[in-house]
Amino acid sequence: MDISILTRMAGDIERNVPIHEETYLRISEHLVKFWTPKMRSDFYKHVTANREDFSETLNKVVDELRAKANA
C-alpha cells in the first residue's frame, strides 16, 4: 500500500484523538486494533526514516508500536 495513504490515515487519526498526555497510547492502540501488521510495519519504517516530518505524537506512536511488538 502506498505510504502516502498510511500517512494520511495516521494524520486523520491524530487530528481526531483529543490531545492528552496519553494521546500517543490511544493512537497506537487504535493502530494495533485496526491496522494489519504490514501497515503498521510500513508506517513504522517510514516514520523512523523521516522522523522530522512527523509530529512528536506520531513519533511516540511508532515507538510505542515497536515497544508493544517487542513485548
Binding site: M1, D2, I5, F34, W35, T36, K38
Partner: peptide, 18 residues
C-alpha cells in the same frame, strides 16, 4: 491474531500489487 484489511485497504493494496 492480527486484523486483516478493510475494503479501502484491499483496494489500495490491489493498486500497489500486494
Amino acid at each position: 491474531s492480527d486484523p486483516g484489511m478493510r475494503i479501502p485497504n484491499m483496494f489500495d493494496n490491489a493498486i500497489s500489487g500486494e
